[in-house]
Design a protein around this nucleic acid. Structure first.
Length: 617
DNA sequence: GTAGGGTTAG
């Protein structure tokens, strides 16, 4: 206490407020400042005290500063103090409080300035509701609309509300846009999905810095154009631009999407070599990349090496283990997460439920579902219901699946019914399949996946009439099957293959290889299963068409381009069909190759003629 | 004495 008094005597009690200060200590300091008469002696010290509380980056102190502001006349806070409170709240847990602070500011007859508005716009960008445009009106009245900081914040705010046309208007009115405002606009365009316009803008920029490169790369990755993102990153390196942590996060995300393990590994080495800081975000994207490339060991190595973990980190690991079929590990990790006091969220449970689903752990899945609601008070969303339906359905418990759908408190969406339809396909239940299809077409006419599934159900039981009926309907409604696409990485370069794509530069070679594979597989006992082929092609082409499924092209290319014994990693946008799954098992045996296929839902690790999914997917 | 653009999980 002697030390404390001493500090107060030197008017630096404020320096005691730091990140490690507890609310209790803050109250003590406050009490001392009050009783020692510091506030009356020096009225400005109250302002400093408030600002220090707000800027301590501790949620309890932040909310204490909030309540203090409203309850402490006669010490009138000045504009700077209120601004710092607004600033602190704008990036804190309750940004909406900024607007009460703003009203309070006005009630004190203080005039807001451009600082005030940049903070308010930041808050408006991260809160639901349409206060942004109201703030926009206010700042115009206060003459702050021409300030650069305000302008870029406005673009950011409108972009986060999804109002890209408004961002264009703001940008148009900027007389001499600078690096930052251009980058804001570029980001807004990319986030609206118009990456090509963003790229045009990027190419025309008179100068670029790390942030603008990052914005463009992230823009590509965000809309799923990961390959373009990686290409641009290559250009960034070529031009000698400085790379930092956010750059690497986007690049790793791109590698994860593409399953590009070689590039991802290179990035990992680059991070180490250049001493980039492996913070929570970067660490999480790194481990996620390893998981999505099917490298469980390396992913977990990163996980255990991370000192700081947040819920994203845990979720990535839990989900990664589940998707790779390591369900026991996944459940263990969840226990550890709970024991460390980390609060799971809805995403955590998506991972857990999917894990139970792919492992056929019905009872465990039920327990998790209750745990989520009862212990954690998390309201299940479509995706959680989807997991449950899938879990029952895959396990052959179709009655329970239907019952579950009927008991859902929310309206089942298309994917709920499609999941059921998928189970009907697995267990040849035509009647229930038709029922599900009927529900689907009432919600969404152009459900390509559902039409394909139903036609396959009919094909399974040789109901050719049913097949052609579905075909007719698809033609009528103009439903097109989403084209399958598989990606393979060879020596650090990424190659994309589309179903029946003949425009590949090495098409002839691949075709020859497919023929060779076919011969050797037949000798080993493989027989093509043509039932699942969508009947948008003539009967005699069926077998040929099957051999053109995109993963077969990618695997054939891998056999040509990769050295013997090197494992192959494929990423596919759809689920693997039964025939391709069977074919790949044979390839793994006949060609003695480890093949890892990541499909829309999960991983398949093929080795010695077997798959890690145990043919349950 | 406060400020604007870029980063993670299903």
């Amino acid at each position: 206490m002697a030390l404390l008094k001493n500090l107060i005597a030197h008017n630096s009690a404020l320096s005691l407020i730091d990140t490690s200060t507890s609310l209790r200590q803050a109250l003590q300091i406050h009490a001392h400042l009050l009783t020692s008469g510091a506030f009356t002696h020096d009225p400005s010290s109250f302002n400093s005290f408030l600002s220090s509380l707000a800027l301590s980056s501790s949620p309890p102190l932040l909310s204490y500063s909030y309540s203090l502001l409203f309850s402490s006349p006669p010490h009138s806070p000045n504009l700077l103090t209120v601004n710092s409170l607004i600033r602190a709240h704008s990036s804190g847990p309750s940004p909406h409080l900024c607007f009460s602070l703003y009203r309070h500011l006005l009630s004190l007859s203080l005039a807001p300035n451009h600082f005030t508005f940049t903070f308010l716009l930041r808050a408006a960008a991260s809160t639901v509701g349409l206060l942004g445009p109201v703030i926009h009106g206010a700042l115009t009245r206060y003459g702050c609309g021409t300030d650069r900081h305000v302008q870029s914040s406005l673009i950011h705010m409108y972009s986060s509300l999804g109002l890209v046309s408004h961002t264009r208007v703001i940008f148009r009115d900027i007389i001499d846009p600078d690096l930052v405002t251009i980058t804001s606009m570029l980001t807004a365009l990319a986030e609206s999905g118009d990456v090509d316009s963003a790229r045009e803008m990027f190419d025309e920029m008179p100068e670029r810095d790390t942030v603008s490169w990052n914005a463009m790369i992230a823009g590509y990755v965000h809309v799923g154009r990961s390959k373009d993102g990686l290409d641009l990153f290559g250009e960034m390196l070529n031009q000698g631009a400085k790379v930092n942590e956010p750059t690497m996060v986007s690049v790793l995300t791109a590698c994860a999407h593409l399953g590009a393990l070689d590039q991802g590994t290179w990035v990992h080495a680059y991070i180490q070599k250049n001493r980039l800081k492996l913070n929570v975000t970067l660490g999480t994207s790194l481990l996620d990349m390893y998981f999505k490339c099917g490298s469980i060991e390396r992913a977990m190595k990163v996980f255990w090496s991370m000192r700081d973990k947040n819920v994203f980190t845990w979720n990535s690991a839990i989900n990664g283990l589940a998707m790779n079929g390591e369900v026991e590990e996944c459940l263990k990790l969840f226990e550890l997460m709970e024991s460390q006091g980390v609060i799971p969220d809805g995403v955590t449970f998506v991972g857990l439920l999917q894990g139970c689903c792919v492992a056929g752990l019905v009872q465990k899945g039920r327990e998790m579902f209750s745990l989520m609601k009862d212990r954690y008070g998390i309201e299940p969303l479509d995706e959680h219901y989807g997991c449950m339906i899938d879990m029952y359905g895959r396990a052959g418990k179709l009655d329970e699946a239907v019952q579950f759908i009927h008991n859902m408190p929310i309206e089942p969406n298309v994917s709920a019914w499609r999941t059921l339809l998928h189970s009907c396909k697995m267990y040849n239940n035509v009647e229930l399949g038709e029922y599900a299809m009927n529900k689907i077409t009432h919600i969404e006419v152009n459900s390509d996946g559902a039409h394909v599934l139903l036609s396959n159900i009919y094909a399974d039981c040789r109901n050719w009439k049913g097949v052609s009926r579905v075909r007719e309907r698809m033609k009528e409604k103009g439903v097109r099957k989403e084209p399958g696409c598989s990606v393979i990485e060879v020596h650090g370069a990424v190659y994309e293959f589309f179903v029946r794509d003949k425009s590949q530069p090495r098409y002839r070679e691949i075709k020859l290889m497919l023929g060779e594979v076919d011969r050797r597989l037949r000798l080993a006992g493989y027989r093509a299963n043509t039932k699942e082929v969508l009947f948008d092609i003539e009967e005699e082409d069926k077998e040929d068409a099957i051999s053109w499924h995109s993963e077969k092209l990618a695997i054939a290319f891998g056999l040509i381009a990769l050295e013997e014994g090197v494992e192959m990693r494929i990423v596919k946008n759809l689920r693997v069909c039964w025939d391709c799954h069977d074919w790949t098992k044979f390839v793994s045996k006949v060609f003695d190759r480890k093949i890892i296929v990541r499909d829309r839902n999960r991983f398949h690790h093929f080795k010695d003629g077997l798959c890690s999914c145990k043919d349950y997917w």
